[in-house]
Design a protein around this nucleic acid. Structure first.
Ligand code: ZN
Ligand code: ZN
Ligand code: ZN
Ligand code: ZN
Lengths: 162, 162
DNA sequence: GGTTAATATGTTATAGAATTACAATTATCA
DNA sequence: TGATAATTGTAATTCTATAACATATTAACC
């Protein structure tokens, strides 16, 4: 549950709310929410999909906010490290978090047909992974949980393997 | 359970068994287990760790089995698509499967300190991910499940953050 | 306010991972 | 054997990510 990404929603408010939450969190924790960082988050939020670093960089370049890869990667590092955005390993791409500020472990549902990505919550310490880890003596610090398949819409559309 | 990778084991037999299993599976399914494909699997099995495609290519090159990236990637594609090996997304690296032939969904425990990787079994359709998927109407075809943390040995060694 | 230290950005170059495209070879099967 | 499909050789390119160092901005302290 707590999934977002496949359903319609009030996008304008969604963006606004996420930005406010991040602003508040940065203010509270004395983090510098600079122009580039803000803009990168805005780009991710507005598209509401997973975007590659270079795709983001293209936008920044058009706007005169930076033209070299490190500009994008640094901003993304900041956003990811504070969990305002996440990296989708399977896609080598980044996506804005739908629960900024809250501590959480995201799980992603990735549609292979339309590339939509939904973020859900996972609790890796519980469930299979947690059991395996405790049996083995492995200490979990982070977890990558990503499902690849078909979203509800594409499932109906019945597109076969791409 | 059914984890392998952090414990000591009879490695020679482990390699031999895996190769036999793959040979048998290829024979049964009329797959061409060619020299390069076999050698790449052998390399992965012998090292018993996650290796990058270019690292594998270096070995192939030394042995005169190929020198260009596609040689390694094609062999890896074959091995991965038939589940004789897996890709560890988090590491952009590949690892030999510990249960070749069987249909299964691997989950990995990745030690950030010593880079050891253990393969465990996951059943994504069950558990959290499956519940989220069925609630959302998402159809899961594959799953990436990777935990990053500290293996039992490194946990004892008490190495702090790298 | 002015000084210092920490943080963030600009820029160049390079490293690392993966694919496209086309030619040449080898295996499969009728 | 000959036709067909699968695999391999090779060159070039694209995409992803980081290292290194100079400059500028911000925060913190006196
Ligand atoms: Zn999130
Ligand atoms: Zn879709
Ligand atoms: Zn496996
Ligand atoms: Zn370890």
């Amino acid at each position: 549950m707590d999934t977002i990404g496949f359903e319609q929603h009030d996008h304008k408010n969604c963006v606004k709310g996420a930005l406010s939450a991040v602003e508040a969190h940065c203010a509270a924790h004395k983090l510098q929410f600079t122009a580039v960082r803000r803009r990168v988050l805005e780009i991710l939020l507005s598209e509401h999909r997973a975007m590659g670093a270079y795709e983001i960089l293209d936008v920044l370049r058009d706007e005169g906010l930076g033209s070299q890869p490190p500009v994008a990667y640094r901003a993304l590092d900041f956003l990811v490290s504070h969990r305002f955005a996440h990296k989708v390993e399977r896609l080598n791409a980044f996506i804005a978090c739908t629960h900024p500020g809250e501590t959480h472990t995201p799980a992603f549902l990735i549609c292979r047909s339309c590339d939509a990505v939904a973020e859900a919550h996972a609790e890796p310490s519980k469930g299979m992974l947690g059991r395996v880890a405790s049996e083995t003596g492995f200490f979990i610090e982070q977890a990558v949980v990503e499902a690849i398949g078909l979203c509800p819409q594409c499932r109906k559309g019945a597109l076969p393997c791409p």
